[in-house]
Design a protein around this nucleic acid. Structure first.
Lengths: 214, 214
DNA sequence: CCGCGCCCTAAGCGCTTGCTCAGGGTCGGG
DNA sequence: CCCGACCCTGAGCAAGCGCTTAGGGCGCGG
């Protein structure tokens, strides 16, 4: 019946999708795409979950791919917003990195249904739509890279390969969407705290004075 | 410890697929599944890449899903073998963990086409086939957990949450298959070294005597 | 009451899908 | 020469796909 989507702290993740019927279709599409994948989901399935006939979908969306694009764009924007909000706070680089990882991971765990579509189904987008989304992802990368770079510059962090470590941190967070199980024993908060700690350890200078590898 | 177990070479990992035509079909399927995804790949596409007619596929495989199963099973077995070989070496827990991560990551980068199919398309397997594969994945988890647990017990590692950290380490390695780009600037060896170092930092005790989080 | 616009549906079109099947090359043993 | 055995193909079937179109139900100004 209901999905894990209604546990959000905001009044509604898809509140900005304006005609109510269009929103119902979009939420149904998120569930279906997350469960079966984009290509294995039929327009009849989406419409059925929204309580409509297959034809109703095409009143609100031009194609099935446009639905995916809307989901992917809004999802990426939300995730990027979460990341930027933490990155723009005051505090040490370590505090901001921990906050960013914690919030970003929590978002991917809480909203793992959406996140799975957003992360898994990039390849199903058309060419122009995909390049638009890839630009959003590059901004996420830039946010994390900036924090790590600042930490390195002011001596908080010891990171020989900033670009590679940024990639690894983002990869770690994003992959939460793949394995997180709402029925499992870990809450999104717990995973966020665990990951924030692990990432801290990856970047912080070590008191024993050992330099980086090589 | 076996000497002639080298899996390198161009046709490398699929040597055990015995009729040559069946192997050609399987390699074609790996490429197609990795490029477009299982559900977006047609049997005509696979057969075409192998230089055969669509009907030829069904002489060697009963269904398209059986092809995916064969790929997924062999891929998981190879990856697990790589992991276990490093875990069974002599040395400290830190050395074995670093070796396991380095080899596992290198495998996912070098063979990222196969790895992508293996990791992305689990959900497209039938029920019995999927449970069989999930059992293999649990064994990978057990291997890493054992090393980390040993390091904790003998004081090499400081890991408050062994199960969670194991999950994170495996997630980090596996996700390499998603983002690794053969045309990119990083070689599989470089990524393996980088990741082995990052994982070391995640688990090793810190000389400044700080305890874990909380 | 009518008539118009807004949403929606029943029906179905053209095409592709996974898969089947009767038959055709080729080759070694009689 | 014929013979199955072995692999493979051309043609195609039933089902399902994304998407379209003609029209129905309903609220509302007149």
């Amino acid at each position: 019946m209901s999905t894990a989507d209604d546990t959000s702290g905001e009044d509604g993740p898809w509140g900005e999708v304006t005609p109510e019927a269009a929103r119902r279709l979009l939420v149904a599409a998120v569930d279906a795409f997350a469960e079966r994948g984009y290509h294995a989901t039929t327009t009849r399935d989406i419409a059925g979950r929204a309580g409509m006939s297959p034809a109703a979908l095409y009143i609100h969306y031009k194609t099935k791919e446009e639905l995916l694009h809307r989901i992917s764009k809004i999802g990426h924007e939300r995730a990027l917003h979460v990341l930027e909000a933490e990155a723009d706070r005051d505090g040490t680089a370590a505090e901001r990195l921990a906050g960013a990882v914690r919030s970003f991971v929590r978002w991917h765990a809480e909203r793992h249904t959406t996140a799975r579509v957003v992360q898994y189904e990039l390849g199903a987008l058309g060419d122009e739509h995909r390049t638009e989304i890839v630009a959003l992802r590059r901004r996420s990368d830039a946010v994390v890279r900036r924090i790590i770079g600042e930490g390195v510059r002011n001596g908080e962090f010891d990171v020989p390969d900033v670009a590679g470590t940024t990639l690894a941190v983002l990869s770690l967070c994003i992959d939460v969407a793949r394995w997180f199980d709402a029925q499992g024993s870990r809450t999104p908060d717990e995973v966020g705290d665990l990951y924030a700690d692990l990432v801290q350890r990856m970047v912080k200078v070590r008191a024993d004075g050992s330099a980086g590898p090589r």
